[in-house]
Design a protein around this nucleic acid. Structure first.
Lengths: 364, 364
DNA sequence: GCCGGGTGTGACATCGTTCCCACACGCCAT
DNA sequence: ATGGCGTGTGGGAACGATGTCACACCCGGC
């Protein structure tokens, strides 16, 4: 408050370095720290901290002075500094395969809701189903010292990596490390079986399966569920009816076009996720196959369009929002109780009947 | 390495506090810090830091020793500590209205891509279009000291708040503070006008507008574009044809049911976003109105289902992914050059003709 | 008058990182 | 011999928040 006005040292005329973010612009008045609050309130930093966090003794009038100073200065505590000191983080990482897929978007929305409701922030990344990007995101999460990670894993590597770095992990939708890691899943086997049985129950015997992969967890279980339904109906599997066409609509559509044009085409299709269902549906539309008269379709995984097309697509509806929410809840449980044995939540699914199935027509 | 095996102090038998996260579990071996790396390599922290960041002199063999130690210890630098020291953050905040809406999900996906490609992480929040939650998320972003925020704003408050705290902001999709803040938008007025002109051009004169709101930015411009098209066709506006039905499908559907059952029903509808279009479409389906013969429909904002239903819905396609990406690019520009004048990017749109429009039928 | 306990406060160390500075070499030119 | 420079290294102070600890004060009881 003296005659010396140089509260802050004058910037030396340093040459600007264009590669790094500019130093705090002079137009922005430097953010208030707890020290500023303490000075304005005429107390020490410690006291200000106690007043603001509510831990420890503070006289009532001092508390009010500090709070009012904080308000005037628009003080917002620096979460990174707090984390550094307390070694406790209030962000979680969420890693999904593709935000543009409504399933993952809803899952992320549910995760975000749950995180928020517990006072956590969400770091979200999208790996496009690519293992490399998944690893990159995992590294970022570790660097940011998130409290834990919810992931729809693309490989088991990421789980190992995160656990080696002491980061609690919950697998959601897919499960690579059964028995070692918390997970939130649906009963893929049972649901796939029930869905396929809708078709066998109507008399279909030529039922194709469109699936992304059949080796891991989710895909494998859906495949097995399909097989179980066929077995129960004493239908022999035709390998050409099991189509692994990856994760993209166009590829699925191409594969479906080929399959549905053949002489020995299936009378029904079970698509193991919404992307594949979309490919099949588009192919059927392109071939002008009437659904359900000429082709029955059931999808694993509901999507908005399935209730908008005519007829609607019968689907196994997974509540992705609930899945995301449950995964975060489980993660926070784990953070609270690190040594509890791994737990798996199984979220119930619904089969929504919409009209895309009918008994097989008479085809040559 | 001596006989004293207590590398870490034994935990005193402190009573567990169930309200706070448990202290580092003994099963997790404490994360390596740069100090550990330095010790293993037999150098000081400073030298280790120089070796790892690549700034400053380090002898080649020392560098290799440090790097190898870091590898062995699986050292991952603590981004929060780095941020605290450098006062530079490598995360950005992204705040959208509703992740379950494909428009926002794609926008977020684009933002995430761009952020990642520049080495930034994305904190994502979803405010459900609620101003209070928007404020909460903004506070979290400030606390986390993100480098900047991309937001689809619900009110002008958030922009003020963030700017007062010195956080660079880019508005995307909606624009509340024209001229003061960077923004990435589409030319809503022109696009809405062109879309409406498709309808007037076919001879429609009874054209309803479904819109969320008409007071702010995006909604206002779309409304004006609609009006401009009507004016150009010398059609007088019928106020009952402008329906503000909020942000939710069911409300829009109800409103559409009412409007489309009336005697003086419109022959065409322009829906100002994908949610409203869905409501209108469902209402039309429910009333068994044939599209386009009995009702023409144009939507602002494309969505996956619009190309799957029959007929497809003619739509103004905004590339939401590009919108998100551009917003992040603009934000990073702003971070690099804080004092540049505000800039607005206008992303071009496409009108995709799909078959949901036809000349008006003969109705009483 | 002295002690003990409750109440309220400030000094200081700490978290993990970076980076400014001082210093210690070896070498060459003076 | 001495100085200066280029190279390489370590000490120590930040960054912002928290929390331990010691101390200072005031009260009542001896």
């Amino acid at each position: 408050m003296g005659q010396d006005a140089s509260v802050e040292p004058a910037d030396p005329p340093a040459p600007a370095d264009p590669l790094r973010p500019a130093p705090a612009a002079s137009s922005v008045p430097r953010r208030a720290t707890i020290k500023d609050v303490a000075e304005m309130a005429g107390v020490s930093r410690s006291t200000a901290s106690r007043a603001l966090t509510g831990r420890g003794y503070v006289a009532e009038d001092v508390r009010r002075r500090v709070l009012s100073a904080a308000g005037k200065l628009r003080y917002v505590p620096d979460a990174t500094a707090r984390h550094l000191k307390q070694q406790v983080s209030l962000s979680i990482g969420v890693l999904v395969s593709d935000l543009r897929n409504s399933f993952y978007a809803e899952l992320a929305a549910g995760a975000g809701q749950a995180a928020r409701s517990h006072g956590y922030s969400m770091m979200l990344a999208d790996d496009g189903g690519v293992a490399e990007d998944e690893a990159g995101a995992a590294e970022a999460f570790v660097a940011l010292r998130v409290a834990g990670v919810v992931v729809t894993p693309v490989s088991a590597t990421i789980i190992d990596y995160l656990r080696r770095h002491g980061v609690p992990v919950v697998e959601v939708d897919r499960q690579f490390t059964a028995g070692e890691c918390d997970a939130v899943v649906v009963d893929n086997h049972a649901a796939a079986r029930r869905a396929t049985e809708r078709l066998t129950g109507l008399g279909h015997r030529r039922i194709a399966l469109f699936i992304d992969e059949t080796d891991w967890t989710t895909g494998r279980d859906r495949y097995r569920g399909y097989r179980a339904a066929l077995d129960a109906a004493e239908i022999e599997e035709d390998p050409s009816f099991v189509v692994s066409s990856g994760w993209d609509v166009v590829a699925a559509q191409d594969a479906a076009l080929r399959l549905l044009q053949g002489d020995a085409r299936p009378t029904a299709v079970f698509a193991a996720n919404n992307v594949l269902a979309e490919g099949v549906w588009r192919a059927a539309a392109q071939l002008k196959l009437r659904i359900p008269d000429e082709l029955s379709v059931v999808s694993f995984d509901d999507a908005p369009w399935m209730s908008m097309v005519t007829p609607g697509v019968t689907a196994v509806a997974q509540d992705a929002t609930t899945l995301g929410r449950a995964a975060v809840e489980r993660l926070l449980q784990r953070v609270a109780v690190p040594d509890a044995p791994p737990a798996v939540d199984v979220i119930p699914v619904d089969i929504i009947e919409r009209g895309s199935t009918a008994p097989p027509g008479q085809i040559a």
